[in-house]
C-alpha cells in the first residue's frame, strides 16, 4: 500500500460517528486567512495539533449545545490547498464546511467554485458557510454583491480576523449547523455508505455517478 505524504486516510475518523463529536472543515485558497480566523475564534484557548505529514492542522474546541457537551474538531489545511485539491479523507465524515475567500483578491472568490465542486463530490449535503474575510481592509466590500453564495443558496458572512467582526458568530453558527446536520442527517451519501459497508467494491462498477463518489469515499476509507 503506497502512502503519499498527504495520505490522511489512516487517521481514525470513526470517532466522528459518536453523538458528542463533530468535524468541521475549512476550505479556501492559500493566504485567505483560514488559520487566522481559527486563532481569533479560539484566542488563547487553542491547542492546534500539527499533523505536518498530512499537511493538516487540527484545532479542538469544547462547547455546549442545548446543554450537552460537544467536542468539535476543526480541520485546517496547513498548505494542502496548494495542490488545488484536498485528500478525500479531508472531507470524510465532515459535518459542516467553512469556505473562505479574501475580499482583496478576486481570484480567491473565483476559486470558490472549484472548492465547492470538490466539496459536493464528497459531501453533497453538509451545511456550508461562505466567508468574505478581511473586510477591515475595505469596508465598502460589504456593500458589494457576491452572487456565488446566493446562487448556491449558501449563507454569506462578512468577517475580519483582524478586528474580530463576526468571527465568533461564524464559528458558533457553524457548530450549530454541524450539530443539526448530524442529528437530522438524511444525507443520502451517509445512508448509502452504511449499505455499502457489506458490499463488494466490484459491484460499484455499473453504478451511477453518485455511487461512484461513494465508492471513492469508501475506497479511501478502506485503504
Amino acid at each position: 500500500m503506497a502512502r503519499g505524504t498527504t495520505d490522511i486516510s489512516e487517521l481514525d475518523q470513526e470517532k466522528y460517528d459518536t453523538d458528542e463529536r463533530v468535524k468541521i472543515i475549512c476550505l479556501g485558497d492559500s493566504a485567505v486567512g483560514k488559520s487566522k480566523l481559527m486563532e481569533r475564534f479560539l484566542m488563547d484557548g487553542y491547542r492546534p495539533e500539527q499533523l505536518s505529514t498530512y499537511a493538516l492542522t487540527l484545532y479542538k474546541y469544547t462547547t455546549t449545545v442545548d446543554g450537552k457537551a460537544v467536542l468539535v474538531d476543526f480541520w485546517d489545511t496547513a498548505g494542502q490547498e496548494r495542490f488545488q485539491s484536498m485528500h478525500p479523507s479531508y472531507y470524510y465524515k465532515a459535518h459542516a464546511c467553512i469556505m473562505v475567500f479574501d475580499v482583496q483578491r478576486k481570484i480567491t472568490y473565483k476559486n470558490l467554485a472549484n472548492w465547492y465542486k470538490e466539496l459536493r463530490e464528497y459531501r453533497p449535503e453538509i451545511p456550508c458557510i461562505v466567508v468574505a474575510n478581511k473586510i477591515d481592509a475595505d469596508m465598502k466590500v460589504t456593500q458589494r454583491n457576491f452572487n456565488f453564495a446566493k446562487k448556491q443558496g449558501l449563507p454569506l458572512y462578512y468577517v475580519s480576523a483582524a478586528d474580530g467582526t463576526n468571527v465568533v458568530k461564524l464559528f458558533k453558527d457553524a457548530i450549530k449547523l454541524a450539530m443539526s446536520y448530524k442529528q437530522n442527517s438524511n444525507d443520502f451519501m451517509d445512508e448509502v455508505m452504511r449499505e455499502l459497508e457489506n458490499f463488494e467494491l466490484e459491484q460499484n462498477e455499473e453504478s451511477s455517478d453518485k455511487e461512484d463518489n461513494v465508492s471513492k469515499e469508501e475506497k479511501t476509507h478502506l485503504q
Binding site: 485558497d29 492559500s30 493566504a31 490547498e81 496548494r82 488545488q84 482583496q104 483578491r105 478576486k106 481570484i107 476559486n111
Partner: peptide, 15 residues
C-alpha cells in the same frame, strides 16, 4: 501584491 495572482501556485518562500 497582485490581486489577480494565484498564490496557490507559489513556492513556499514566495508565499
Amino acid at each position: 501584491l497582485d490581486p489577480d495572482q494565484d498564490l496557490n501556485k507559489l513556492s513556499d518562500e514566495e508565499l
